[in-house]
Amino acid sequence: MRFRRTAVLTMSLLSVAATMPAATTWAPAYAVTTAMTPAGVSASARGNPAGRVPVPAEGRAVNTSRPTRVIGNGTPGSCTSRAVVAAVAKGGIITFSCGPRPVTIRMAATAKVRNASSQVVLDGGGKVTLSGGGVRRILYMNTCDRAQGWTTSHCDDQAQPRLTVQNITFADGNSTGQRTEGGGGGAIFARGGRLKVVNARFVRNRCDTTGPDLGGAAIRALDQSHDLPVYVVGSTFGGAAGQGGVCSNGGALSGIGVSWVILNSVMTGNRAVGRGANPARGGTPGGGSGGAVYADGNRFTIRIAGSIIRDNSAREGGGAVFFVSNDLTGTLRIEHSTLRHNPSAGFETRGYPGIFYRGAGRPSVVSSTLR
């Protein structure tokens, strides 16, 4: 079965870069208040410590007190790339025993989820970093990839695997040159099933630097089951100068037709560095939108709550958030959050600094700061 986003790839943005220097003309319908102070967030912290937005049950960490399998025998040397790859392929609830100190596991191969797995939980216990070494993607799930097992005739909308990453850091992932399913996903690529991210950090991840619809230096998500959202909770993308992700679009997150719920999280220093927008202007390779978040498709939603999105940038549109719902059914809601200093070098929606928006009505902004 072919991936159903073909029309999206050709419709996106409607050549807005060439026609829309100031974007839409409505005035913002919100009161600007200070929800939290971005200063002082530790570079090693996971998420926004001032975020107090309640997390629904489906967005919370998985109980890993009874793991299916444990990587390592209590020493750093026992926690290897080979062990991670094998454990992820077998599935279940996975924890680590690598000793009392933080450990970095440099991945010699990408860990791939098998499509027959009902659940894969990767819990680093707050001590484990998985590193792509600047040369490879770290984690991969694709329900339409026959190499990972063919489990259903409707691969683009199956309920499993359910992939959760929690209490873990993904560093120096790089999917450059990996163009399957449109590319992107320097640290994590997830198509189909469900993805959830809780108390995680993503630093210095990369993907291709050009391409009109390619994105997600940290995470690229496609075709979530029944169009349910990806939860990103208490997590940090970047967090300090030089630690952010870099990609053509979506310096942190990218999705096509995917809904996101981003709660109590931090996104700083991420960059969309492509040139030419989407569809690409003549003589350009395309890209450059969504410094932190790039979202495209038809009917999808984004909710950002209790979060800080600061000091991200886009060479084209949406230094913080790029949101295009081609059929104008999608909605964007920002609550109790701070979006500050997210320059859009090309275009953004007037009255909403750092945001380019095409969707149903206006973005909903509640008790938040946009500057």
Rank of each mutant, 00 (worst) to 15 (best):
6 T>C: 07
7 A>N: 14
11 M>Q: 15
18 A>M: 13
20 M>G: 05
20 M>V: 05
20 M>R: 10
22 A>P: 05
24 T>P: 03
31 A>G: 14
33 T>K: 14
36 M>G: 09
39 A>M: 13
39 A>S: 15
46 R>A: 15
51 G>N: 04
56 P>G: 08
60 R>I: 02
62 V>W: 09
66 R>E: 11
68 T>H: 05
69 R>D: 09
79 C>F: 01
81 S>N: 02
83 A>Y: 04
85 V>Q: 05
88 V>L: 00
90 K>N: 11
91 G>Y: 05
92 G>V: 10
92 G>S: 08
95 T>R: 10
99 G>T: 01
100 P>T: 14
102 P>K: 13
105 I>G: 00
105 I>M: 00
109 A>E: 14
114 R>I: 07
124 G>F: 07
128 V>P: 06
134 G>K: 06
136 R>D: 03
145 D>T: 09
148 Q>N: 12
149 G>C: 09
158 Q>C: 06
160 Q>D: 13
164 T>F: 05
165 V>I: 15
168 I>F: 00
170 F>P: 01
173 G>Y: 01
174 N>K: 07
177 G>C: 07
178 Q>A: 14
179 R>I: 11
180 T>K: 08
181 E>M: 11
189 F>D: 08
191 R>S: 12
191 R>H: 03
193 G>I: 08
195 L>R: 12
195 L>N: 09
200 A>K: 03
200 A>T: 15
210 T>Q: 11
213 D>W: 13
216 G>F: 02
221 A>C: 09
226 H>L: 13
237 F>E: 06
237 F>C: 06
244 G>T: 04
247 C>Y: 02
248 S>C: 04
249 N>L: 02
257 G>Q: 11
259 S>P: 10
266 V>A: 14
268 T>A: 13
270 N>C: 10
271 R>P: 04
272 A>V: 08
274 G>Q: 02
275 R>G: 12
284 T>V: 05
285 P>I: 04
294 Y>T: 03
295 A>K: 04
299 R>H: 13
301 T>M: 05
305 A>L: 08
305 A>E: 13
306 G>C: 10
306 G>D: 07
311 D>Y: 14
315 R>L: 09
316 E>I: 01
317 G>W: 01
322 F>E: 00
323 F>M: 00
323 F>P: 00
324 V>F: 08
325 S>M: 02
326 N>I: 06
327 D>H: 00
332 L>I: 01
341 H>M: 11
344 S>Y: 07
346 G>T: 09
366 V>E: 14
